[in-house]
């Protein structure tokens, strides 16, 4: 069974049609990349999958693990194993990262029928993951993303992802705002999550990230439609020829 099955999905924001019939199948173990110029609808697709409120689904369906998730709240989707690493993570002053993450871990465990982690086990879990992403301890006591640099925010997203252990990881422009060292660390974190059961969807404008997180499939999104799919060589071709090349091809 496919992990994610997006069938002819259309969505609009504020009365404007943004997604115009998306078809996408991700099987367990696969890494897919969605590339496309700014404004093509990449973040919209990610948001609709994660269940953001102000997006209206006007047609099609999304099956995740064989379940229709479009009717689910964002937290239910997260508990089902979907994770979105945001393009623009928000700052939440006054809510500490550790407090929030423990609440998240235990909400998901509870949903899965697993016992909640106590403070000790939780600490052990996050220490291990922090090491992987070369993060400082002090980070856990800080408010979520408050005063973080762009790169720190992205790293925090991937850190949370590794802690929450999702079935499907959606990364929205995780590479933007990262210098090359940070990019390597973040990619390492993502690659460590690659396994035969997990799916990964990498959304990016540039090919650069795909040198580090090598995809099995590449799709090109333009004006709310996937206009071309291929393997990783498609990304290189796009990089060399630019999006204009596909304009003519489409």
């Amino acid at each position: 069974m496919a992990l994610l099955e997006v069938d002819n999905l259309s969505a609009r924001v504020q009365g404007r049609d943004i997604l115009k019939g998306i078809n996408l199948t991700i099987n367990p173990g696969e890494v897919h990349a969605i590339m496309g110029p700014n404004g093509s609808g990449k973040s919209t697709l990610a948001s609709v999958l994660a269940g953001r409120d102000n997006y209206e689904v006007t047609g099609g369906s999304v099956q995740f693990n064989g379940k229709d998730i479009l009717e689910m709240s964002p937290d239910e989707r997260a508990c089902e194993g979907l994770f979105l690493a945001f393009q623009y993570p928000v700052e939440i002053p006054g809510v500490s990262t550790s407090y929030f993450l423990k609440a998240a871990v235990n909400a998901i465990r509870k949903y899965r029928g697993e016992p909640e982690l106590d403070a000790m086990d939780f600490l052990k879990l996050i220490k291990e993951k922090m090491k992987l992403l070369e993060m400082d301890q002090s980070f856990m006591n800080r408010s979520i993303n408050e005063g973080f640099s762009g790169g720190e925010k992205k790293r925090n997203e991937i850190f949370q992802m590794t802690v929450l252990d999702p079935k499907l990881c959606i990364l929205d422009e995780t590479d933007s705002g990262l210098d090359i060292d940070a990019l390597k660390i973040v990619s390492q974190g993502v690659n460590a999550l690659r396994n035969p059961t997990r799916g990964i969807l990498v959304v990016t404008h540039y090919q650069r990230l795909l040198n580090y997180i090598v995809p099995d499939f590449v799709h090109v999104l333009r004006d709310g439609r996937i206009i071309k799919s291929g393997d990783k060589s498609l990304a290189l071709e796009l990089e060399a020829k630019g999006y204009g090349w596909l304009e003519n091809a489409a």
């Binding site: 269940g51 964002p74 937290d75 997260a78 939440i92 949370q160 929450l164």
Partner: peptide, 23 residues
């Protein structure tokens, strides 16, 4: 936006609201 962020990590809407209110 903050509400959605917390929810997208599995925290229920009610819990997320109270977290933000207490903060």
């Amino acid at each position: 936006e903050q509400l959605f962020y917390l929810q997208s990590r599995g925290v229920s809407a009610a819990r997320a609201r109270s977290l933000l209110t207490y903060a």
